[in-house]
Design a protein around this nucleic acid. Sequence first.
DNA 1: CAGCAAATTAAATGGACATTCAAAAAAATT
DNA 2: AATTTTTTTGAATGTCCATTTAATTTGCTG
Lengths: 209, 209
Amino acid sequence: MQEAVKRARGRPVGSSDQEGKRQEFVVAVMRAIAEHGYKDVTVATICKAAGFSRGLIGHYFPGKDALLLHAVREVAKDFERATRTAAGEAGQDPLDRLHAVVGATFRKPVFTPERVLVWVALASTSHWSPELAEIYRKLYRPYRRGLSHLIKRAADARGVNVNPERLAITLTQLVEGLWSGWAADPKTVSAREAEAACHDLLDAFFPSR
Amino acid sequence: MQEAVKRARGRPVGSSDQEGKRQEFVVAVMRAIAEHGYKDVTVATICKAAGFSRGLIGHYFPGKDALLLHAVREVAKDFERATRTAAGEAGQDPLDRLHAVVGATFRKPVFTPERVLVWVALASTSHWSPELAEIYRKLYRPYRRGLSHLIKRAADARGVNVNPERLAITLTQLVEGLWSGWAADPKTVSAREAEAACHDLLDAFFPSR
DNA sequence: CAGCAAATTAAATGGACATTCAAAAAAATT
DNA sequence: AATTTTTTTGAATGTCCATTTAATTTGCTG
């Protein structure tokens, strides 16, 4: 006897690119934030940036807040991926790796206006949002751990005396501050100068002699 | 014939403490931002923090935006005043002055939760507000000029090779990033650690030997 | 092609908010 | 005390916005 296989009728679920559509929303969120600011992003501006009608958001996300959080998580993921890649491509010397990681934060694909502006918004809003604070910590905790590990190795190899955890915080927060400064006044804090400032910092802590 | 002098009757204008009331609003804005976040500050929360009714704001400011800008300008003024004072009290040695100025940004009266949170909000919103961007630049331009001047003198006195403008930007943005980091995760980026990070940075660029 | 389900739209709904306004309270002068 | 003005209030107003909903379109399946 033939097994009564329950066949899907109508349009098969999963045939459409649900995840792709969600990604389109994420891109639209980044564009909308970059254009209007985190404070003034509305469902209307997001959907306009995506070319969708206002109501569609409800079919792919529980609501505006969930979409915003999802977008920020994507930015954090991209950041992590890109810095890992940069470190991997830099070879074995820990100081080279530090320069590579820090340099990557001022170059594509990490450093795009959209990503930086979203990140600055995240960092400055985390204080009042447990969800954003968690995203922030979940990215920075292992990131700083990796940096301090590299710092320790570089210091040991050179006989330099540093506090690895503190210097790791210094690096992450200098980058964050430079991003913030670029966002506020890109003429004064250009990406090029910002990157140079980071390399100078590493040179100061690890003098080549 | 007696000159018909128009005498003011009733309550004389200017006898009440208008400026004092405006300052009460400023304090209330800082409290309200610290509690609810820049994005979620409303006229209602501000007036509640001040103990006034909602409608009163209209008698002392053209509107909410004007009050917010006024409050941020006050914070910027206080910042400038306090750093100048710190520099003045530090004596003549330029490196001592740099340490003092940077240290002051992590101590009262500059470093209070309210002020830091307002500043973080300002910095991260300047990109989308010409008015905020102007406040930001008007504070930072002369501030960085003063820092780079001190850096240059300290470097000349010690025969150290640095780029004064770049290091000045590094200092301001490291402080900004540390403030931002403290706001997002005060446990990891404590005021004490943040200040130590800044002193370490100066020590790295100006080694005592 | 017919029928059905998913995808999408655009308008409706309801709530939050800044601002305005008329009235009341407070304060100062005559 | 009476009068005039300032200060303050709290409700009314109108706008903006996220979300919901019914209706429409699109595309698959038989």
